[in-house]
Amino acid sequence: NQESVVAAQLIPINTALTLVMMTTRVVSPTGIPAEDIPRLISMQVNQVVPMGTTLMPDMVKGYA
């Protein structure tokens, strides 16, 4: 089963992602794949992401 990127903390809107903000977990439905974490660093979220929420492609500016 593929791991997806999950918020390790509350991420406010327009925050640039850092490694410490993200963790990985096997979730359903699947979100952004864990191997894309290096690509996500410094990208901004376009909404508030509560802790434990799976990051979906449409939540990250410039990802999709």
Score class of each variant (00 low, 15 high):
Q9G: 06
R39H: 11
D36T: 12
M21Q: 06
G52D: 10
N14I: 02
M21D: 11
S28G: 10
V5E: 01
E35W: 10
I41V: 15
A7W: 02
Q2P: 10
Y63F: 13
T53Q: 11
T30W: 13
M43R: 12
T30K: 15
S4R: 02
S28I: 10
T54S: 06
M22P: 00
Q44M: 12
I37N: 01
Q44H: 13
P29Q: 12
V60W: 01
T30L: 13
A8S: 13
P38W: 09
V20Y: 13
E35L: 09
L40Q: 00
L17E: 00
A8L: 10
T30E: 11
G31E: 02
T30M: 14
V20S: 13
P57K: 13
M22A: 00
I37F: 07
P29S: 09
I37K: 14
Q2I: 14
L17D: 00
D36C: 03
M22T: 03
Y63C: 03
T30R: 15
I41Q: 11
P12T: 12
V6P: 01
V49M: 04
I11S: 00
D36G: 09
M56Y: 07
A8F: 04
V60S: 01
V5M: 02
A34D: 05
S28Q: 14
V27A: 11
V6F: 02
A34M: 06
N46C: 04
T54D: 01
I11Q: 00
M43E: 05
V48I: 13
N14L: 06
V48T: 12
I32M: 03
M56V: 12
V60Y: 00
V6Q: 04
V49H: 01
R39E: 05
M43K: 14
E35D: 12
M22C: 03
T18Q: 09
D36K: 07
V20A: 08
L19I: 10
V5W: 02
P33G: 07
P57C: 04
V5Q: 01
I13Y: 07
P57Q: 12
P57G: 11
T24A: 13
E3R: 14
D36N: 11
S42I: 02
V6E: 04
E3Q: 10
T30N: 15
V5K: 00
A64T: 14
L55H: 01
I37S: 07
N46M: 10
E3N: 08
Q47N: 08
K61S: 08
T30P: 15
Q9E: 09
P29N: 13
I37L: 08
S4T: 05
T23F: 07
V45W: 02
P50Q: 15
T15L: 05
P29A: 07
A34Q: 09
Q47K: 12
R39D: 06
I41F: 04
Y63D: 04
I41D: 03
Y63S: 06
Y63G: 03
S42G: 15
L55A: 01
P12W: 04
G52E: 06
V5G: 01
P33Y: 12
T18Y: 03
I37Q: 08
N1P: 07
K61T: 15
G52I: 02
L17A: 00
P12L: 05
A16N: 08
A8M: 04
G52C: 04
S28F: 08
P33K: 05
M56G: 05
P38S: 09
G31Q: 04
P33I: 12
T18W: 02
G31K: 02
I13T: 12
V48D: 09
I11M: 07
G62N: 15
Q9S: 08
P57E: 05
M21L: 11
N14E: 07
T18V: 04
A64H: 10
D58M: 13
S4Y: 06
Q44E: 10
T18H: 06
L19S: 07
I13K: 08
T23D: 12
N1T: 13
M59A: 06
I41S: 04
S42R: 08
I32G: 00
M43F: 12
K61Q: 13
A7D: 01
R25Q: 15
L19D: 08
T30D: 06
N46E: 07
N14A: 15
M51Q: 15
A7F: 02
L19Q: 15
I32V: 11
G31F: 02
E3V: 14
A7T: 08
T53G: 10
V60R: 00
A64E: 14
M59W: 15
Q47V: 05
L40V: 14
N14P: 01
D36H: 10
V49K: 00
V48Y: 13
K61W: 11
S42M: 12
R39T: 14
V6G: 01
D36V: 07
V6D: 00
T54C: 03
T23S: 09
P38G: 14
A34F: 06
V26D: 06
M51H: 10
T30H: 14
V26G: 15
T23K: 08
I41E: 14
P57L: 04
V26T: 09
M21S: 06
T30S: 14
V20H: 13
V60G: 02
A64I: 13
Q9A: 10
V26Y: 09
V45E: 00
Y63Q: 07
N14F: 15
I11L: 09
T18I: 05
V45D: 00
T23M: 15
T53P: 01
I37T: 05
P33H: 12
Q44V: 10
I32E: 00
Q2F: 12
V27Q: 05
P33F: 07
G62I: 04
A34W: 05
A64L: 09
Q44W: 06
Y63M: 07
P50M: 11
